[in-house]
Amino acid sequence: MISGIILYTIATIYVSVSFIKDRHKTKVAFLSSWKMFRNALPDLLAIMLFIGLALSLLTPPLISSIIGESSGLLGIIYSTIIGSIVLVPSFIVFPLGHTLIQNGAALPQVAVLMSTMMSVGLVTLSMEQKSFGRSFAYSRNLSAIIMSLLFALIIGVLMT
């Protein structure tokens, strides 16, 4: 909520300055913003619905039972797979991580789940390919998986 207010304030200031300096440029900017928004909308709606479905089907107690304290390496693999399906915004991920730990999930497994949720997206891969090409999109997702696994390893060594 606060971040929204800050964003709107910044945007309003820049739009006003831009409008005073050059009306035409401002109009073109708005038009291209609108096109960007329209291009992203179908994917956005689908991703949101997908997250909604995933979160209501995979309830926190269910996930926690899969990736509990004794789940070990298998738990890490499950977390990586679940987390890699779709890109989830961080304001959903952190509260979810908190709930999972309270439900008995182990910390390294939650770490890899949250990290892959925020950085790896199979569902959004086609969208990413459209932006940067196939090779870059695949490599970036792969590097994010490696990052998440190493991160979980560090958490496992230092915090458990």
């Binding site: 964003l7 820049y14 739009v15 900017a29 928004f37 709606l45």
Partner: peptide
């Protein structure tokens, strides 16, 4: 989450549009 997005996205896209110009 759609409402959250619709609230946060417009200023981000507008700033990107301005950046482009």
């Amino acid at each position: 989450s759609i409402l959250d997005m619709l609230f946060l996205l417009p200023p981000i896209f507008i700033l990107v549009g301005l950046l482009d110009q």
